[in-house]
Nucleic acid binder design. Structure first.
Lengths: 184, 184
DNA sequence: GCCAAATAATAGGACGTCCGACTAATGGAC
DNA sequence: GTCCATTAGTCGGACGTCCTATTATTTGGC
């Protein structure tokens, strides 16, 4: 038979597929139907939206990381480089980096460790507060930030996989979500 | 002075803030303005939308994990439990789990390892294909899936932090994004 | 029937994230 | 002036994700 026995185990599956695609139905929509069927209708849209958000993040991150991989940086480190590049002095305290990116202090330590190993940034003690560490962009760091931005713009940001109208609507909705969460 | 010196380093920061909130401007909107200013306008909305997506994911995941933590499961493991619960026989091959959740095979191995340690699922060899492993929900696993769903619905999915209109629009846009990415 | 190609799952490792605990420095109350 | 609460950053560990490589099994071409 042309259908692998595994795939027919739960009904509805008619063909094997690579892990990145090829299902003949939308698992999230199927889950949403289950929610309605079990009288969790009040939560169905929220469940589907949040689950979709998780998956959309995974898709977007994979694209971004794939574009950046040849340059030897990750998106987390790229964000730090951009923050420094856009700062007036090319340097920021660890704490400010964490606040702007909304990540845990240890995540900043992690990213800066690796950027420092790659000679893209340097660490120095803050002149006005000896507890604080100033992170400064090196020329190599700025050069990489520029190249990475050019790559990301061309390969991802200019073609995010949605029509312009959707991109704009998505941005507005997510901005409201972030504001409601206290992001700014 | 009442303003920590660190916070004034790049201008605009007027107060210290806990890491989860309190910035007096939106860093993503500021980045978008930089994109426009540097003549990357064609990529500005895409950049802002994708960056917002990353942050929105972080916010949503934190809420979900926070709700699940008292129950001793993570969202990744919860998704596996739900998939099994909704399946006709309460069991699925590893491969199918990975395809439905769109994650790497090793992620399924990881999640099932931990669920098995917690006696929420069992592993057995697939009767029709000795290469494959059938994962089966235990009574404790189903009981936990039910309790976790009740908790998640009440604490997160019924109040996702957006108005119903936005939740619905978000779901539609992300569904188009996932379809364009070949998800189903 | 036999053997090579494809497939299912796991092992080991890299990376980013968070958490709790810890050190060092700051600064306000007295 | 002294002391203690607060703050900045790091360390070790847990977890989820992906990648590459490997083992076992199945399947299809001949």
């Amino acid at each position: 038979m042309d259908v692998n026995v595994i795939w027919s185990y739960d009904g509805g599956m008619t063909a094997g597929a690579p892990i990145t695609g090829g299902l003949d139905f939308d698992p999230i929509d199927a889950a949403r139907a289950q929610w309605v069927e079990r009288d969790w209708g009040a939560a169905a849209d929220g469940m589907a939206a949040i689950t979709s958000l998780m998956r959309a993040h995974q898709i977007a991150l994979a694209r971004v990381e794939s574009a950046l991989r040849p340059l030897g940086v990750t998106f987390a480190r790229y964000e730090v480089l951009m923050l420094l590049w856009f700062s007036k002095r090319g340097s920021l305290p660890m704490k400010v980096i964490g606040s702007r990116l909304q990540v845990h202090p240890t995540s900043v330590t992690n990213a800066v460790d690796r950027l420092e190993d790659a000679a893209l940034v340097t660490r120095s003690t803050h002149p006005g507060d000896r507890r604080a560490i100033l992170v400064t962009l090196t020329p190599a760091g700025q050069e990489l930030a520029e190249r990475a931005t050019k790559t990301l713009n061309a390969e991802v940001f200019e073609r995010p996989g949605l029509e312009a109208r959707d991109v704009h609507a998505l941005l507005e909705i997510l901005t409201r979500l972030r504001r409601a969460a206290g992001d700014f």
